[in-house]
Structure formats: C-alpha cells, structure tokens
Design a protein around this nucleic acid. Structure first.
Lengths: 209, 209
DNA sequence: CTTCGATTGGAGTGAATACTACAATCGTCG
DNA sequence: CGACGATTGTAGTATTCACTCCAATCGAAG
C-alpha cells in the first residue's frame, strides 16, 4: 500500500481484450472494496470475483496501490457521472430535491452498506496512501465544482440571491452529504443523510432571491 | 478482527498496576490508529509505543478486536468529554461558535491528520466489524443527544423558535461536523469543517425566535 | 503460415503479523 | 514469611497475503 506509479496513459500497450480484462478487475475490486472496506479487500478475492489469475492482475497493475488508484478513478467517474447530469440541470428547488433523492435512493439500494464510495476510500486511505489522498481530494474538488456551478445557475436563474457565496455553500453541502452518508452507513438507516441534505436545502431556501 | 467478547466489567481481576498497563496500551493504540488508520495499525507498533510485550497485550485483551473496542470506548469518552461541557452550556449563538472553535482547533492541532477519531473508526470498521459498528453508532447517538439537548436548551432560552425539530437538527449538524472533518482530513485544510459548521449555525440563525 | 508480443495459468515464495506457550518475577494478602 | 495469583519476558508458530516465475497459448500483422 501507499505507493504506486503515476500510471497516466491507461490505453497503451493493451489490446481490446486486455482492456476488457483490466476493466473486469477494476469492477470487481470496486465492488469488494465498497462491501468490505479498502484494507479488508484481499487481492485473492478480487481475482476470484473477476475470474482472473494473479499473473493477469499484475500484468495490468504494478501493485495493489496502482489497482486502488484505478478504483478511485473508476468510482470517481461513476459518482460524478451520476451526479453531473442532475447538477447540471439545477434550476429550481425541485431539482435540488431530485438530487437529494438520487443520493438517498443510491444508498438505500445498497442497504446503506459501503456509504459513499469516495468518502469511504478517502477515510480509509488518507493516512496510509498520500497519492490516493490527493487523488480523492481532487475528486471531491470536482464534485464540489459541479455543485457550485449548479448553485450559480440557480442564482442566475433568480432562484437564489445574487450575493451568495456559492463556493462555501458547495463545500458545506458536500460535507452534509458525506457526513450524512457516514452516519447512515454506521446506522444502516438512510434517515441521517436525508435529514442532513434536507437541512442544507432548507438553508438554501432562506437564501432565495 | 470482527469478533471479541462483551468485555463489560473492565475493573475485574486486575490490580492498579495492571490497569495502568492496560491504559497505556489503549492510549498507544488510540494514537497509532488515529495517525495511520485502523487496519494499518500493527500490534507490534502498539506494543513498542506502549512499552509492553505481546504477552501483556494478550493478557489484557482477548484479541485485536477487543483492543479496538476498548479504543472505541476510549475515544468516545475523550470526544464526548471534550464536547459535553461545551454543549451543556449552550444558551446563545456565541456559545455555538465556541463549540465550532473547539472542533476547528482540535483538528488544526493535529494538522488535519486522522480526522474525527470516531468518524474514522466508523468508516474503517463499519463493513468489517459489526460489533464495532454498533458501538460507534451508539457513540454517535450519544453525541447527538448532547447536541439535541443543547438545542432544546437554546429553544427554552428563547434563542430558537418553539417549533424546531431538535432531533433532526442534531443529526444534520453532526453530519456537517463529520463530513466537514472528512473533507478537511482529505485536503489537510481546516477550511472545510469550518465552512460546514458555519453553514449549520447560519441555518440555526434563521430559526431564531 | 510465421512471428512475436500480448495474454493467461498455476504453482510457489518470502515477509509480515496476529496470536501462543511457558516460564520467570512481582506483589498482595493471609 | 509463604503462597498464590497477577504480571511480564522471550521465543516462538501458523497463517495470511502481496507478489513472482516461467512456461503455455492466443491473436494480430506481415
């Protein structure tokens, strides 16, 4: 743990079949890490779940740290891919509540197991893998940017006051989401996230134009 | 991991010297777990930090899971011990900001390493140790109760409206704290917690009587 | 078809680490 | 003092797990 290269160009030296295998490994690793935690996910189980041998895993990833970085990229793409279309259409409070529902539905669909993929990875890796920590900080920053842009859109739409601090609000709302998901994960009950996000939205309502 | 007994009566069959050794072990384990994460904390390092041998560690704890439960108890007592006196004197918004400062100062004093002791433990153990997960859920519940009582005191003091939902507010504010601390830990920058808690307090201000 | 790199299989290794066995010593209480 | 349990030290063991080796096979390009 706590190592691995930069691993920039993923699509290099691999055939289509190879890339499919690589993807299978990342998928399996993502699922197992979400279900059992970063450190508790054993490479052997990932191999079994992905139906690959050890040599394949090490053919596509230099070590476990590199695989984890790939999982971070994968989960970041998944999470942002889910939230981006919703946040890019933020023009009303109804849209905001739809966004909340996306979050609540998502954790309920997995019975509150795993919490937020990015939040769990961040908490599990922040003190043991500096590279992963920075990668996750970037993921959060991007998520925050989407949120901020959405709030600015609502402001420009006349739904929020002109003098709002969209950046601080975005940080704070993301914190509500992350904290709510952590509490829900710990309690195995989605009420906490729902309440947390609802409070954040209720606050935004006090900032209406 | 993921086992261990109920371990109710701590003060049983141990002399004062033994209890001191036990405490030394729990202290060392708490620090190392906070600094490196739950899973990354090795028993050997804990032994060295506490200046005890393996046999001593296993004399006082059945296994690593039992030690972790003791760490949870210890950190819960520390956190609640810090917050209780502040939250029990909540009678104004100034007091609320003092509480925020306690949180921000605390994470800044450790340069944002480790985040919230309870939050990190919860995230690291929720999917691998059911007993620990429940213990941490109880810790959060107690923390929430303190917060709720404080809000009710402010309400009774005429600082907040009579119709506030103190329970939902307490959950949401705790979520802001936890999420803010996670973001600050990931970014190594206390701005996130501060913004998150400030937003929660700003919302409370809109609920003034 | 041939070639050569990409891909895969399977068995294995070494290090890390949770946990144990057993005996020595301390210290408390009669 | 004497006894007996609490405490501690040393030296392990057993197992897990990340990672490696080497050869076999696939498959695309010429």
């Amino acid at each position: 743990m706590a190592i691995s290269s930069t691993e920039s160009p993923v699509t290099r030296r691999f055939t289509a079949k190879g890339l499919a295998t690589r993807e299978r490994i990342v998928d399996a690793a993502s699922t197992l890490i979400l279900e059992h935690g970063v450190e508790a996910a054993r490479l052997e189980d990932i191999q079994a779940a992905a139906h690959v041998s050890a040599s394949q895993l090490y053919h596509y990833f230099h070590d476990k740290g590199a695989l984890i970085l790939a999982v971070i990229d994968h989960q970041t793409a998944l999470v942002l891919g889910t939230h981006r279309p919703v946040l890019e259409r933020l023009d009303s409070f109804d849209a905001l509540y739809e966004w909340r529902d996306v979050i609540v539905d998502s954790i309920e669909s997995q019975h509150c197991v795993g919490g937020c993929p990015l939040g769990s990875l961040a908490s599990g890796l922040a003190e043991s893998d500096p590279i992963a920590r920075v990668a996750l900080a970037n993921s959060f920053a991007e998520w925050e940017r989407l949120l901020q842009a959405g709030l600015e859109a609502m402001r420009d739409h006349g739904e929020l006051r002109a003098d709002i601090d969209a950046q601080s609000l975005a940080v704070s709302i993301l914190a509500s989401v992350q904290g709510g998901l952590l509490l829900s994960q710990t309690r195995r009950d989605s009420h906490s996230v729902r309440a947390a996000v609802d409070m954040a939205i209720a606050y935004l309502k006090t900032l209406r134009a």
